[in-house]
Design a protein around this nucleic acid. Structure first.
Lengths: 144, 144
DNA sequence: TCACACAGTTAGGCAACCTAACTATCTGGA
DNA sequence: TCCAGATAGTTAGGTTGCCTAACTGTGTGA
């Protein structure tokens, strides 16, 4: 086995553990914001990716349609997204003003917790985290 | 608001999104290995941190005792951990040989998926991911 | 010795996933 | 024209992982 693959195996483990810890760390803050992490993530996709169909949103979030169907149902009943029919079997889902506001509020809540931790780090380490986040999103992107 | 805090807010968001994506990306492989991510994480703590009480394990994993109680119950029924009574109300929980084997198998499954992605990256970017993982674990560590 | 602290479990509930099966709609080719 | 098949989404039912509240049983110090 080449040395680089052994290394990658370790990195895979470390990233896995780090992701689990980070989400547990942030979950409480998300809950306090009145939305769950999955809801926040979907709102974020709609905010930055624009209106899209349920199927596209499910693909972007890497979940199956029934999961997204339920999630969007909840968000709609909360007035955070709305549907604009395309034809009689599908709609475009768009974030509402309230949804956008709530997403910003959630971001601020997370900030309160995570930025205290980040503030303790030197700028170059924060850079590394930012770059790492970008890399992770890139390599887990269903499009790529 | 100082510039660094604005920056940290963005990094917080990016890390959050990255963690969600990474776990969704890896979940299927964990399932194929016959253990769930939370189980794998607990086994990992026991493998590297040594035997410990249920309460300590819950604290290490940043979950509440009932959560860990159920998780350990499952792992025990699968023969992946065992309990050694300390007194009549608490035990030390230790990973078994089978638990260790299964953890290694899970690691290999994740490798199969993630390392293909990592292999496409230059070594310096893999370094960044490894360092970032270490930073995340450090800043979300309940002990620190 | 006995009241309180401590360790863990039980009960009940919710969010986020999944697969399988279904409904309804659209569309292309005979 | 029209219907077979593809497509979009929902419903039904199940699992895992997390929580709080309430409980049981055990240990301990004043």
């Amino acid at each position: 086995m080449p040395r680089s693959s052994m290394r990658n195996e370790q990195v895979a483990d470390q990233l896995h553990a780090a992701a689990i810890r980070l989400l547990r760390f942030l979950r409480k803050e998300d809950a306090a914001a009145g939305v769950t992490p999955a809801q926040l993530s979907a709102l974020s996709v709609l905010a930055f990716g624009g209106p899209q169909t349920l199927g596209a949103l499910a693909a972007a979030e890497q979940v199956k349609p029934p999961t997204m169907s339920q999630l969007v149902g909840t968000l709609e009943s909360l007035g955070l997204v709305c549907r604009k029919p395309l034809d009689r079997r599908s709609s475009q889902i768009a974030i509402t003003r309230r949804g956008r506001q709530l997403m910003e509020a959630g971001r601020k809540r997370r900030l309160a917790k995570l930025s205290r931790a980040l503030d303790a780090l030197p700028a170059d380490q924060i850079d590394k985290l930012a770059q790492a986040a970008g890399l992770i999103v890139a390599i887990t992107d269903p499009i790529s």
